[in-house]
């Protein structure tokens, strides 16, 4: 099987824990989809829930609020990876239960 476990863990560690233009706290908040001020909150919320509805104005208003483009780049990446991770982790737990394994024990890193 393809097994992306290590590569995915490395991606999440890189975007959340290593050096970035946005603070670690902001990147974590974007990943979790919680605790960001407006207008950033609206943009990050849309990335997670319905990214196709994001408009030029959503991004422009974040930029006008003083958030630099490199920070927006990082925070949007964190939001996308965070949402996809929640879906993926929930699905793996369901698979482990269906397969007769203890989800948490089997997947613990």
């Amino acid at each position: 099987m393809s097994d992306i476990t290590q590569a995915r863990r490395a991606l999440v560690a890189r975007i959340l824990e290593e050096r970035g233009e946005a603070s670690r706290a902001q990147r974590r908040a974007a990943f979790d989809g919680a605790g960001l001020p407006e207008p950033l909150r609206t943009l990050i919320d849309k990335v997670a829930k319905y990214a196709h509805r994001i408009t030029d104005e959503d991004v422009a208003s974040v930029r006008s609020s003083g958030v630099r483009e490199d920070e927006i780049f990082e925070l949007v990446v964190c939001a996308a990876v965070g949402q996809a991770s929640r879906q993926y982790d929930a699905a793996l737990v369901a698979l482990d239960i269906a397969n007769g394994k203890d989800g948490h024990a089997a997947r613990d890193s």
């Binding site: 097994d3 990214a51 991004v59 996308a80």
Partner: peptide
């Protein structure tokens, strides 16, 4: 699991494609 890995990757990439326009 392999299919979920594809699902993960494209749930990331699609969001970025739409967010960054």
């Amino acid at each position: 699991e392999d299919a979920l890995a594809v699902c993960f990757a494209f749930n990331v990439i699609g969001r970025l494609a739409d967010a960054f326009g």
